[in-house]
Design a protein around this nucleic acid. Structure first.
Length: 437
RNA sequence: GCGGACGUAGCUCAGUCGGUAGAGCGCCGGUUUGUGGUACCGGUUGUCGCGGGUUCGAUCCCCGUCGUUCGCCCCA
Protein backbone atom coordinates (compact mmCIF):
# COMPACT_ATOMS: atom_id res chain seq x y z
CA UNK A 1 0.00 0.00 0.00
CA UNK A 2 1.03 3.56 -0.48
CA UNK A 3 0.14 4.44 3.09
CA UNK A 4 3.08 5.34 5.28
CA UNK A 5 4.99 2.41 6.69
CA UNK A 6 7.16 2.06 9.74
CA UNK A 7 10.86 2.44 8.99
CA UNK A 8 12.57 -0.81 8.10
CA UNK A 9 13.54 -2.78 11.15
CA UNK A 10 11.24 -0.86 13.48
CA UNK A 11 8.05 -2.17 15.05
CA UNK A 12 5.01 -0.98 16.88
CA UNK A 13 4.39 -2.71 20.17
CA UNK A 14 0.68 -3.15 20.68
CA UNK A 15 -1.50 -5.50 22.69
CA UNK A 16 0.06 -8.85 23.50
CA UNK A 17 3.48 -7.84 22.21
CA UNK A 18 3.60 -4.78 24.41
CA UNK A 19 2.52 -6.87 27.41
CA UNK A 20 5.29 -9.35 26.71
CA UNK A 21 7.89 -6.61 26.51
CA UNK A 22 6.64 -4.92 29.65
CA UNK A 23 6.72 -8.20 31.50
CA UNK A 24 10.34 -8.82 30.54
CA UNK A 25 11.37 -5.35 31.62
CA UNK A 26 9.35 -5.36 34.84
CA UNK A 27 10.71 -8.74 35.80
CA UNK A 28 14.31 -7.71 35.16
CA UNK A 29 13.79 -4.52 37.15
CA UNK A 30 12.37 -6.48 40.08
CA UNK A 31 15.05 -9.17 40.10
CA UNK A 32 17.97 -6.78 39.74
CA UNK A 33 16.41 -4.81 42.59
CA UNK A 34 16.72 -7.89 44.77
CA UNK A 35 20.47 -7.75 44.09
CA UNK A 36 20.64 -4.11 45.13
CA UNK A 37 20.79 -2.66 41.64
CA UNK A 38 19.28 0.73 40.92
CA UNK A 39 17.89 1.89 37.61
CA UNK A 40 19.60 4.59 35.58
CA UNK A 41 18.21 6.26 32.50
CA UNK A 42 20.61 7.86 30.08
CA UNK A 43 19.81 9.75 26.86
CA UNK A 44 19.11 7.68 23.77
CA UNK A 45 21.69 9.74 21.89
CA UNK A 46 25.16 10.84 22.80
CA UNK A 47 28.08 12.54 21.20
CA UNK A 48 29.41 10.10 18.65
CA UNK A 49 32.72 10.01 20.49
CA UNK A 50 31.09 8.17 23.42
CA UNK A 51 30.48 5.13 21.27
CA UNK A 52 33.32 5.57 18.81
CA UNK A 53 35.85 5.60 21.65
CA UNK A 54 34.44 2.47 23.18
CA UNK A 55 34.70 0.62 19.90
CA UNK A 56 37.95 1.90 18.49
CA UNK A 57 38.04 4.03 15.39
CA UNK A 58 38.96 1.33 12.92
CA UNK A 59 36.08 -1.03 13.60
CA UNK A 60 33.65 -1.06 10.72
CA UNK A 61 30.96 -1.31 13.33
CA UNK A 62 31.51 2.39 13.85
CA UNK A 63 31.32 3.37 10.23
CA UNK A 64 28.60 1.03 9.01
CA UNK A 65 26.32 0.08 11.82
CA UNK A 66 25.65 3.16 13.88
CA UNK A 67 22.92 5.74 13.36
CA UNK A 68 25.15 8.78 13.26
CA UNK A 69 24.07 12.25 12.13
CA UNK A 70 25.14 15.86 12.53
CA UNK A 71 22.86 18.08 14.60
CA UNK A 72 22.13 21.65 13.60
CA UNK A 73 25.22 22.88 15.34
CA UNK A 74 27.33 20.51 13.28
CA UNK A 75 28.10 18.22 16.19
CA UNK A 76 28.12 14.51 15.41
CA UNK A 77 25.53 12.60 17.44
CA UNK A 78 24.75 8.89 17.51
CA UNK A 79 21.67 6.97 18.56
CA UNK A 80 22.95 4.63 21.23
CA UNK A 81 23.80 1.19 19.83
CA UNK A 82 24.24 -0.31 23.31
CA UNK A 83 24.04 0.72 26.92
CA UNK A 84 27.40 0.12 28.54
CA UNK A 85 29.34 3.03 27.04
CA UNK A 86 26.64 5.49 28.03
CA UNK A 87 26.52 4.14 31.58
CA UNK A 88 30.29 4.55 31.88
CA UNK A 89 30.02 8.05 30.50
CA UNK A 90 27.29 8.85 33.03
CA UNK A 91 29.38 7.40 35.83
CA UNK A 92 32.17 9.79 34.98
CA UNK A 93 30.02 12.86 34.24
CA UNK A 94 28.19 12.50 37.53
CA UNK A 95 31.35 12.07 39.55
CA UNK A 96 30.29 8.64 40.76
CA UNK A 97 33.74 7.14 40.33
CA UNK A 98 34.19 8.43 43.87
CA UNK A 99 31.43 6.19 45.19
CA UNK A 100 32.04 2.71 43.99
CA UNK A 101 30.71 0.17 43.63
CA UNK A 102 27.78 1.26 41.52
CA UNK A 103 25.14 -1.31 40.68
CA UNK A 104 23.16 -0.17 37.68
CA UNK A 105 20.12 -1.55 35.91
CA UNK A 106 19.01 0.05 32.65
CA UNK A 107 16.50 -0.57 29.90
CA UNK A 108 15.37 1.12 26.74
CA UNK A 109 15.63 1.26 22.96
CA UNK A 110 18.93 0.79 21.14
CA UNK A 111 19.68 1.40 17.47
CA UNK A 112 21.85 -0.48 15.01
CA UNK A 113 21.83 -0.15 11.27
CA UNK A 114 21.76 -3.84 10.39
CA UNK A 115 19.86 -6.22 8.18
CA UNK A 116 16.80 -7.25 10.20
CA UNK A 117 16.38 -10.89 11.18
CA UNK A 118 14.27 -12.72 13.70
CA UNK A 119 14.75 -11.04 17.05
CA UNK A 120 17.18 -8.56 15.55
CA UNK A 121 15.86 -5.15 14.59
CA UNK A 122 17.18 -1.68 13.86
CA UNK A 123 15.38 -0.28 16.84
CA UNK A 124 15.38 -2.92 19.51
CA UNK A 125 15.25 -2.98 23.27
CA UNK A 126 17.64 -4.16 25.90
CA UNK A 127 17.71 -4.79 29.59
CA UNK A 128 21.14 -4.52 31.08
CA UNK A 129 23.12 -4.41 34.28
CA UNK A 130 26.55 -3.10 35.17
CA UNK A 131 28.38 -3.80 38.39
CA UNK A 132 31.11 -1.18 38.41
CA UNK A 133 34.06 -1.20 40.74
CA UNK A 134 34.73 -4.71 42.03
CA UNK A 135 37.77 -6.51 40.69
CA UNK A 136 36.94 -9.84 42.35
CA UNK A 137 35.59 -12.83 40.47
CA UNK A 138 32.75 -13.15 43.00
CA UNK A 139 31.28 -10.02 41.48
CA UNK A 140 31.25 -11.71 38.07
CA UNK A 141 29.54 -14.73 39.55
CA UNK A 142 26.97 -12.52 41.24
CA UNK A 143 26.22 -10.64 38.03
CA UNK A 144 25.84 -13.93 36.16
CA UNK A 145 23.63 -15.38 38.90
CA UNK A 146 21.46 -12.30 38.63
CA UNK A 147 21.15 -12.85 34.89
CA UNK A 148 20.19 -16.44 35.51
CA UNK A 149 17.54 -15.31 37.99
CA UNK A 150 16.06 -12.89 35.48
CA UNK A 151 15.74 -15.75 33.01
CA UNK A 152 14.41 -17.99 35.77
CA UNK A 153 11.83 -15.44 36.81
CA UNK A 154 10.74 -15.23 33.18
CA UNK A 155 10.28 -18.99 33.16
CA UNK A 156 12.82 -19.65 30.42
CA UNK A 157 15.85 -20.81 32.38
CA UNK A 158 15.26 -24.39 31.22
CA UNK A 159 15.48 -23.38 27.56
CA UNK A 160 18.77 -21.64 27.99
CA UNK A 161 22.35 -22.77 28.56
CA UNK A 162 25.01 -20.65 30.21
CA UNK A 163 28.20 -20.79 28.18
CA UNK A 164 31.25 -19.48 29.95
CA UNK A 165 34.76 -18.59 28.96
CA UNK A 166 37.72 -16.60 30.12
CA UNK A 167 39.57 -14.16 27.93
CA UNK A 168 42.40 -13.80 30.43
CA UNK A 169 44.04 -10.52 31.23
CA UNK A 170 45.59 -8.39 28.48
CA UNK A 171 49.02 -10.00 28.88
CA UNK A 172 47.69 -13.55 28.60
CA UNK A 173 45.44 -12.68 25.74
CA UNK A 174 48.19 -10.97 23.79
CA UNK A 175 50.36 -14.08 24.04
CA UNK A 176 47.51 -16.32 22.96
CA UNK A 177 46.51 -14.03 20.13
CA UNK A 178 50.01 -14.14 18.75
CA UNK A 179 49.99 -17.94 18.92
CA UNK A 180 46.65 -18.00 17.11
CA UNK A 181 47.88 -15.79 14.32
CA UNK A 182 50.97 -17.96 13.91
CA UNK A 183 48.87 -21.10 13.81
CA UNK A 184 46.24 -19.89 11.35
CA UNK A 185 48.84 -18.21 9.15
CA UNK A 186 50.28 -21.66 8.48
CA UNK A 187 46.92 -22.75 7.14
CA UNK A 188 45.91 -19.50 5.52
CA UNK A 189 44.90 -21.09 2.23
CA UNK A 190 42.68 -23.62 4.01
CA UNK A 191 40.67 -20.93 5.78
CA UNK A 192 37.39 -19.64 4.40
CA UNK A 193 37.58 -16.33 2.58
CA UNK A 194 35.86 -14.64 5.53
CA UNK A 195 38.36 -16.04 7.97
CA UNK A 196 41.32 -15.02 5.85
CA UNK A 197 40.01 -11.49 6.27
CA UNK A 198 39.44 -12.08 9.96
CA UNK A 199 43.03 -13.26 10.33
CA UNK A 200 44.18 -9.74 9.56
CA UNK A 201 41.38 -7.85 11.20
CA UNK A 202 40.05 -9.84 14.16
CA UNK A 203 41.73 -13.27 14.46
CA UNK A 204 39.81 -14.32 17.59
CA UNK A 205 36.64 -14.35 15.54
CA UNK A 206 37.89 -17.29 13.51
CA UNK A 207 37.15 -19.34 16.59
CA UNK A 208 33.40 -18.84 16.31
CA UNK A 209 33.26 -19.12 12.53
CA UNK A 210 30.47 -21.25 11.15
CA UNK A 211 32.34 -22.36 8.03
CA UNK A 212 33.19 -26.09 8.09
CA UNK A 213 36.68 -25.57 6.62
CA UNK A 214 37.46 -23.26 9.55
CA UNK A 215 35.92 -25.61 12.08
CA UNK A 216 38.21 -28.37 10.84
CA UNK A 217 41.24 -26.36 11.93
CA UNK A 218 39.96 -25.56 15.39
CA UNK A 219 40.76 -28.73 17.36
CA UNK A 220 44.49 -28.18 17.01
CA UNK A 221 44.39 -24.43 17.45
CA UNK A 222 46.18 -22.97 20.48
CA UNK A 223 43.99 -22.78 23.59
CA UNK A 224 43.97 -19.74 25.79
CA UNK A 225 44.14 -21.96 28.87
CA UNK A 226 47.71 -22.75 27.94
CA UNK A 227 48.63 -19.07 27.88
CA UNK A 228 46.94 -17.88 31.07
CA UNK A 229 49.30 -16.29 33.56
CA UNK A 230 48.91 -16.94 37.28
CA UNK A 231 46.65 -13.99 37.92
CA UNK A 232 44.33 -14.97 35.12
CA UNK A 233 44.27 -18.58 36.24
CA UNK A 234 43.34 -17.60 39.79
CA UNK A 235 40.56 -15.39 38.48
CA UNK A 236 39.17 -18.14 36.28
CA UNK A 237 39.27 -20.66 39.12
CA UNK A 238 37.68 -18.15 41.47
CA UNK A 239 34.88 -17.42 39.06
CA UNK A 240 33.99 -21.07 38.56
CA UNK A 241 34.06 -21.74 42.30
CA UNK A 242 31.84 -18.74 43.01
CA UNK A 243 29.34 -19.79 40.37
CA UNK A 244 29.11 -23.09 42.17
CA UNK A 245 28.36 -21.26 45.41
CA UNK A 246 25.60 -19.31 43.66
CA UNK A 247 24.23 -22.57 42.28
CA UNK A 248 24.59 -21.54 38.66
CA UNK A 249 25.31 -24.39 36.23
CA UNK A 250 27.41 -23.62 33.16
CA UNK A 251 29.32 -25.24 30.33
CA UNK A 252 32.72 -24.02 29.33
CA UNK A 253 32.93 -22.83 25.76
CA UNK A 254 36.38 -21.71 24.70
CA UNK A 255 34.94 -20.33 21.46
CA UNK A 256 33.19 -17.41 23.14
CA UNK A 257 35.27 -14.36 22.28
CA UNK A 258 34.94 -10.60 22.30
CA UNK A 259 36.37 -8.38 19.63
CA UNK A 260 37.41 -5.45 21.75
CA UNK A 261 40.53 -5.03 23.80
CA UNK A 262 39.01 -3.70 26.98
CA UNK A 263 37.30 -7.01 27.70
CA UNK A 264 39.15 -9.27 30.05
CA UNK A 265 38.62 -12.42 32.05
CA UNK A 266 34.94 -13.32 32.12
CA UNK A 267 32.87 -13.71 28.96
CA UNK A 268 29.51 -15.47 28.99
CA UNK A 269 26.39 -16.00 26.97
CA UNK A 270 23.02 -17.48 27.81
CA UNK A 271 22.05 -19.28 24.62
CA UNK A 272 18.89 -20.95 23.37
CA UNK A 273 18.39 -23.20 20.37
CA UNK A 274 14.85 -21.93 19.91
CA UNK A 275 15.66 -18.77 17.95
CA UNK A 276 17.68 -19.98 14.98
CA UNK A 277 20.87 -18.07 14.34
CA UNK A 278 19.96 -15.39 16.86
CA UNK A 279 20.19 -17.66 19.88
CA UNK A 280 22.07 -15.45 22.34
CA UNK A 281 19.55 -14.09 24.74
CA UNK A 282 21.64 -12.45 27.45
CA UNK A 283 25.38 -11.94 27.32
CA UNK A 284 28.13 -10.01 28.97
CA UNK A 285 31.54 -9.98 30.49
CA UNK A 286 34.17 -8.16 32.45
CA UNK A 287 35.65 -5.00 31.04
CA UNK A 288 38.45 -2.84 32.19
CA UNK A 289 39.43 0.42 30.61
CA UNK A 290 36.09 1.64 29.35
CA UNK A 291 35.58 4.04 32.26
CA UNK A 292 39.08 5.33 31.60
CA UNK A 293 38.14 5.85 27.94
CA UNK A 294 35.41 8.20 29.15
CA UNK A 295 37.92 10.23 31.07
CA UNK A 296 37.58 8.58 34.47
CA UNK A 297 40.05 6.58 36.48
CA UNK A 298 40.93 3.01 35.58
CA UNK A 299 37.87 1.14 36.89
CA UNK A 300 37.00 -2.53 36.52
CA UNK A 301 33.43 -3.60 35.86
CA UNK A 302 31.28 -6.56 34.94
CA UNK A 303 28.03 -6.30 33.05
CA UNK A 304 25.52 -7.92 30.76
CA UNK A 305 22.71 -7.02 28.42
CA UNK A 306 19.72 -8.99 27.18
CA UNK A 307 17.53 -8.52 24.12
CA UNK A 308 13.96 -7.79 25.12
CA UNK A 309 12.56 -8.89 21.73
CA UNK A 310 14.23 -12.27 21.96
CA UNK A 311 13.27 -12.77 25.59
CA UNK A 312 9.69 -11.76 24.84
CA UNK A 313 9.53 -14.35 22.06
CA UNK A 314 10.62 -17.07 24.45
CA UNK A 315 7.91 -16.42 27.03
CA UNK A 316 5.60 -19.39 27.14
CA UNK A 317 2.49 -17.44 27.97
CA UNK A 318 1.82 -13.85 27.18
CA UNK A 319 0.80 -11.97 30.30
CA UNK A 320 -2.99 -11.73 30.42
CA UNK A 321 -4.71 -8.44 30.06
CA UNK A 322 -6.15 -7.51 33.43
CA UNK A 323 -9.88 -8.21 33.48
CA UNK A 324 -11.97 -5.07 33.88
CA UNK A 325 -15.42 -4.60 35.38
CA UNK A 326 -17.90 -3.20 32.89
CA UNK A 327 -20.72 -0.95 34.06
CA UNK A 328 -23.81 -0.97 31.86
CA UNK A 329 -26.54 1.60 32.27
CA UNK A 330 -29.93 0.64 30.83
CA UNK A 331 -31.79 3.68 29.61
CA UNK A 332 -30.69 7.31 29.61
CA UNK A 333 -31.88 7.94 33.13
CA UNK A 334 -29.45 5.36 34.46
CA UNK A 335 -26.38 6.85 32.84
CA UNK A 336 -25.57 9.46 35.48
CA UNK A 337 -25.96 6.99 38.37
CA UNK A 338 -23.83 4.53 36.40
CA UNK A 339 -21.05 7.09 36.16
CA UNK A 340 -21.25 7.41 39.93
CA UNK A 341 -20.81 3.67 40.35
CA UNK A 342 -18.00 3.62 37.80
CA UNK A 343 -16.13 6.33 39.64
CA UNK A 344 -16.48 4.55 42.97
CA UNK A 345 -15.12 1.35 41.46
CA UNK A 346 -12.10 3.15 40.05
CA UNK A 347 -11.40 4.96 43.30
CA UNK A 348 -11.55 1.59 45.02
CA UNK A 349 -8.68 0.54 42.75
CA UNK A 350 -10.69 -1.62 40.38
CA UNK A 351 -10.13 -1.43 36.63
CA UNK A 352 -13.53 -0.41 35.27
CA UNK A 353 -15.09 0.70 32.03
CA UNK A 354 -18.54 1.73 30.92
CA UNK A 355 -20.39 0.40 27.90
CA UNK A 356 -22.29 3.28 26.36
CA UNK A 357 -23.50 2.02 23.02
CA UNK A 358 -26.24 -0.17 21.66
CA UNK A 359 -28.93 -2.17 23.35
CA UNK A 360 -28.23 -4.25 26.40
CA UNK A 361 -27.26 -7.26 24.34
CA UNK A 362 -24.64 -5.25 22.46
CA UNK A 363 -23.25 -3.86 25.65
CA UNK A 364 -23.00 -7.32 27.14
CA UNK A 365 -21.22 -8.55 24.03
CA UNK A 366 -18.77 -5.71 24.33
CA UNK A 367 -18.16 -6.46 28.00
CA UNK A 368 -17.45 -10.03 27.07
CA UNK A 369 -15.11 -9.02 24.30
CA UNK A 370 -12.96 -6.83 26.50
CA UNK A 371 -12.58 -9.79 28.84
CA UNK A 372 -14.59 -8.40 31.72
CA UNK A 373 -14.72 -10.48 34.87
CA UNK A 374 -17.95 -8.88 36.07
CA UNK A 375 -20.68 -6.72 34.66
CA UNK A 376 -22.64 -4.23 36.73
CA UNK A 377 -26.05 -3.46 35.29
CA UNK A 378 -28.37 -0.74 36.45
CA UNK A 379 -31.63 0.51 34.97
CA UNK A 380 -34.54 2.51 36.27
CA UNK A 381 -35.74 -0.01 38.80
CA UNK A 382 -32.25 -0.54 40.25
CA UNK A 383 -31.67 3.20 40.50
CA UNK A 384 -34.99 3.59 42.29
CA UNK A 385 -34.04 0.88 44.77
CA UNK A 386 -30.42 2.00 45.17
CA UNK A 387 -29.02 -1.34 43.99
CA UNK A 388 -27.26 -2.82 40.97
CA UNK A 389 -27.21 -6.17 39.23
CA UNK A 390 -23.77 -7.75 39.60
CA UNK A 391 -23.11 -10.51 37.13
CA UNK A 392 -20.08 -12.79 37.23
CA UNK A 393 -19.29 -13.45 33.59
CA UNK A 394 -17.40 -16.66 34.14
CA UNK A 395 -20.11 -18.37 36.21
CA UNK A 396 -23.11 -16.49 34.85
CA UNK A 397 -24.36 -15.89 38.38
CA UNK A 398 -26.18 -12.65 38.87
CA UNK A 399 -27.34 -11.00 42.06
CA UNK A 400 -28.96 -7.78 43.13
CA UNK A 401 -26.78 -5.93 45.59
CA UNK A 402 -26.17 -2.49 47.00
CA UNK A 403 -23.33 -0.39 45.67
CA UNK A 404 -21.49 -0.59 49.00
CA UNK A 405 -21.66 -4.37 48.97
CA UNK A 406 -20.59 -4.37 45.33
CA UNK A 407 -17.35 -2.57 46.10
CA UNK A 408 -16.67 -4.83 49.05
CA UNK A 409 -17.31 -7.97 47.06
CA UNK A 410 -15.29 -7.02 43.99
CA UNK A 411 -12.56 -5.50 46.10
CA UNK A 412 -11.98 -8.86 47.69
CA UNK A 413 -11.92 -10.69 44.41
CA UNK A 414 -8.40 -11.46 43.17
CA UNK A 415 -8.55 -8.98 40.34
CA UNK A 416 -5.29 -7.27 40.99
CA UNK A 417 -1.87 -8.82 41.34
CA UNK A 418 -0.42 -7.48 44.53
CA UNK A 419 3.26 -6.85 44.79
CA UNK A 420 3.61 -9.86 47.04
CA UNK A 421 1.80 -12.20 44.67
CA UNK A 422 3.85 -10.89 41.82
CA UNK A 423 7.13 -11.47 43.57
CA UNK A 424 6.02 -14.93 44.68
CA UNK A 425 5.12 -15.82 41.13
CA UNK A 426 8.28 -14.68 39.43
CA UNK A 427 10.88 -16.01 41.80
CA UNK A 428 12.43 -19.37 41.01
CA UNK A 429 11.34 -22.25 43.22
CA UNK A 430 13.07 -22.36 46.54
CA UNK A 431 13.24 -18.62 47.02
CA UNK A 432 10.45 -16.78 48.74
CA UNK A 433 9.66 -13.12 48.70
CA UNK A 434 9.70 -10.91 51.70
CA UNK A 435 10.42 -13.37 54.46
CA UNK A 436 13.71 -13.63 56.27
CA UNK A 437 15.45 -11.23 53.92
C1' G B 1 26.74 -5.18 2.20
C1' C B 2 25.65 -10.62 -0.09
C1' G B 3 22.31 -14.98 -1.31
C1' G B 4 17.34 -17.85 -1.10
C1' A B 5 11.95 -17.65 -0.24
C1' C B 6 7.59 -14.75 0.14
C1' G B 7 3.99 -10.20 -0.53
C1' U B 8 -4.15 -11.46 -2.55
C1' A B 9 -9.95 -8.75 2.66
C1' G B 10 -8.50 -6.52 9.66
C1' C B 11 -6.14 -11.95 10.34
C1' U B 12 -4.86 -17.05 8.19
C1' C B 13 -4.77 -18.49 3.36
C1' A B 14 -6.99 -20.42 -1.57
C1' G B 15 -7.22 -19.06 -6.78
C1' U B 16 -6.88 -17.72 -12.06
C1' C B 17 -2.10 -23.07 -17.55
C1' G B 18 -3.19 -14.32 -18.83
C1' G B 19 -10.13 -12.52 -19.37
C1' U B 20 -9.90 -7.02 -13.05
C1' A B 21 -11.00 -12.65 -7.18
C1' G B 22 -12.85 -16.54 -3.04
C1' A B 23 -13.02 -19.39 1.92
C1' G B 24 -12.58 -19.53 7.15
C1' C B 25 -11.99 -16.39 11.22
C1' G B 26 -13.16 -11.44 12.59
C1' C B 27 -16.49 -7.36 12.18
C1' C B 28 -21.78 -5.32 11.64
C1' G B 29 -27.06 -6.46 11.97
C1' G B 30 -31.09 -9.84 13.20
C1' U B 31 -33.63 -14.36 15.71
C1' U B 32 -34.25 -11.92 21.74
C1' U B 33 -37.06 -2.91 22.53
C1' G B 34 -33.38 -5.30 30.12
C1' U B 35 -28.73 -9.90 29.72
C1' G B 36 -22.70 -11.96 27.09
C1' G B 37 -19.54 -16.20 26.19
C1' U B 38 -22.52 -21.92 22.69
C1' A B 39 -26.76 -21.91 18.03
C1' C B 40 -29.16 -20.16 13.51
C1' C B 41 -30.05 -16.31 9.52
C1' G B 42 -28.29 -12.15 6.79
C1' G B 43 -24.61 -8.42 5.55
C1' U B 44 -19.68 -5.91 5.05
C1' U B 45 -14.50 -6.08 3.50
C1' G B 46 -9.90 -5.69 -1.61
C1' U B 47 -6.15 0.27 -6.12
C1' C B 48 -4.20 -8.98 -5.66
C1' G B 49 2.74 -4.33 -2.00
C1' C B 50 4.37 -0.17 -5.46
C1' G B 51 6.35 1.38 -10.45
C1' G B 52 7.42 0.06 -15.32
C1' G B 53 7.45 -3.61 -19.54
C1' U B 54 5.20 -7.57 -22.83
C1' U B 55 -0.06 -8.28 -24.38
C1' C B 56 -6.33 -6.76 -27.35
C1' G B 57 -6.26 -7.67 -22.01
C1' A B 58 -1.71 -8.71 -16.27
C1' U B 59 -3.33 -10.43 -9.59
C1' C B 60 -0.86 -14.30 -12.85
C1' C B 61 4.69 -13.57 -17.44
C1' C B 62 9.39 -10.13 -17.37
C1' C B 63 12.34 -6.04 -15.04
C1' G B 64 12.91 -2.73 -11.09
C1' U B 65 11.62 -1.12 -6.27
C1' C B 66 9.77 -1.34 -1.23
C1' G B 67 8.63 -4.63 2.68
C1' U B 68 8.68 -9.42 5.29
C1' U B 69 11.35 -13.83 6.26
C1' C B 70 15.66 -17.53 6.46
C1' G B 71 20.89 -17.67 6.18
C1' C B 72 25.89 -15.16 5.47
C1' C B 73 28.90 -10.80 7.02
C1' C B 74 28.74 -8.22 11.60
C1' C B 75 27.35 -8.73 16.53
C1' A B 76 29.67 -3.17 20.92
Amino acid sequence: MSAVQPVRGTHDLIGEEQRRHAHVVDTARTVTGLYGFEEWSTPIFEETAVFARSLGDTSDVVSKEMYTFPDRGGESLTLRPEGTAAICRALVTNGLTQSLPQKVFYTGPMFRYERPQKGRYRQFHQIGAELIGPAEPVADAEAIAMGRDVLGALGIADDVTLELNTLGDPESRAAWRKALIDYFSNFRDRLSQDSQDRLDRNPLRILDSKAPEDRALLPDAPMLVDYLNDHSKRFWDGLRAALGAFGVPFVENPRIVRGLDYYSHTAFEFVTTRLGAQGTVLAGGRYEGLVAEMGGPQTPAIGWAGGVERLAMLLENAPEKEAPIVVIPVGDAAEAPAIGVLTRLRYAGLRSEMAYRGNLKKRMERANRVGASHVVILGESEVAKGVVQMRDLSSGEQSEISVDRLIETLGEAPLRATVREYLGAILPPGLSAGKGA
